[in-house]
Write a protein that binds this DNA or RNA. Structure first.
Lengths: 230, 230
DNA sequence: GGCATCCACATTATCGACAATATTGTTGCG
DNA sequence: CGCAACAATATTGTCGATAATGTGGATGCC
């Protein structure tokens, strides 16, 4: 048996302890408990996660690769923040990739896919009603992973996920906004609907529309910050 | 002064010792000195690069993130190989992204950009004539980095580079093929030309055509391999 | 009082040693 | 002779300690 796996038996989102820490930190950042530019001290995190420092180190390296943390030699890591221009650029690429995914995804969606999406959508919806931002975030993430994972091209899906990660640090501004979360929920519902009845035109349309709000929310907020310095 | 850099003074391709090792291994893989599925032992690499094991470890992690190396817990790392289907998929996404980049790159290209590209093209061309695959690879890489880096969207450029990295393990099949390298050289020249006179239509066309050959070369070779098992 | 220098502290980077795990080889039994 | 259990080796994973580096504050000079 060769080193290279022919089939990956386990779920992608399982893995070791470093993945747990990566996802946890990602959540903290998205939920705003860790703010942009905030410092991330290795020892502190090691204590918090009850892990050794080299594990934290690996997690930080991965977060850096994901683009939501910045590191400097001998100085340490910090939560990355984005300029308005960067936000625009990230969302431009997302629009391109997600639009393409929506174009090539097999229609109508398989019963299995639709079932999974509906289940996730249900959890998401309940979390929205219950005002549980953590669960909202997780379900939302999963919804998009499953949806775009179904496009048939894992590499396209992967790039989409990567950009989504980068956008997370942005998205947190939107996740606490009642109106936006509700809109997202409603759009998810429509995606499932169009997927089910094979309406590609509408699907592409709603996918394109879906990524705009949080971008605008971030830009709005960021212009407010700018004003504080006047 | 905050941890987060406002401006990155140094060249992106500089960095520490781990980057040196990453690029070096990448080259070895592309040039075929390290073959797909070949095992990468930490200690061996440590000796070869005169580095400590934890540095090698970090480099392997990065190569894994780049998608050209596969790792399994307690088993080690190996050069990744791609199935024909995966090659198709990677090139599909590349076509999408590079096509988009060609659509949005400001035309005509700035004199500074054209100057840089011409210089790189010159080096590339000489390396082709001199049959120096290592230099060909480096110059080719740089050409594409500079070209797509000029599209104005660093995130798009980054995604393109990432996919290019993945394709490297594929590209090595083409880099030793005289005809293909010459064709690439000629196409680079045309890109500069269209960039210079602001002909977007032609530019997009040649960019699209440019990424096909090495894909086909890989698929051709890979079907030969398959026959050996009959 | 302003400024340069040095020192103490905080934090990250490096290292070598050891532990855990997988792989290969060997032995002995049926 | 085949196969299973065990032993030996190879390789990666983990750990604690120490070195290197950067940061801020105190000191002393002008």
């Amino acid at each position: 048996m060769n080193v290279q796996d022919l089939v990956e038996p386990q779920d992608e989102t399982s893995s070791g302890p470093i993945e747990r820490i990566v996802r946890s930190l990602e959540e903290e950042i998205v939920l705003g408990r860790l703010r942009p530019r905030e410092r991330l001290l290795e020892e502190e995190l090691a204590k918090h996660f009850d892990a050794k420092r080299h594990v934290i180190r690996a997690a930080l390296a991965e977060l850096e690769a994901l683009g939501i943390v910045v590191r400097q030699p001998n100085k340490g890591a910090a939560v990355r923040d984005f300029s308005p221009q960067e936000v625009e650029q990230i969302y431009d690429v997302r629009a391109l990739l997600e639009g393409h995914a929506a174009e090539i995804i097999p229609l109508p969606g398989s019963p299995e896919l639709l079932g999974r999406l509906k289940a996730i959508h249900e959890r998401h919806s309940q979390a929205v009603d219950a005002h549980e931002p953590r669960t909202v975030f997780r379900a939302n993430l999963e919804f998009h992973r499953v949806l775009f994972g179904a496009c048939g091209n894992p590499y396209l899906a992967e790039q989409i996920n990567q950009l989504a990660s980068r956008a997370h640090a942005i998205r947190f501004h939107a996740i606490s906004d009642e109106k936006l979360v509700n809109r997202a929920r409603e759009e998810h519902g429509r995606m499932i609907e169009y997927l089910e009845r094979g309406d590609r035109e509408k699907l592409v349309e709603v996918v394109a529309a879906h990524i705009q709000p949080s971008k605008e929310a971030y830009l709005r907020l960021s212009s407010q910050w700018a004003q504080r310095f006047r």
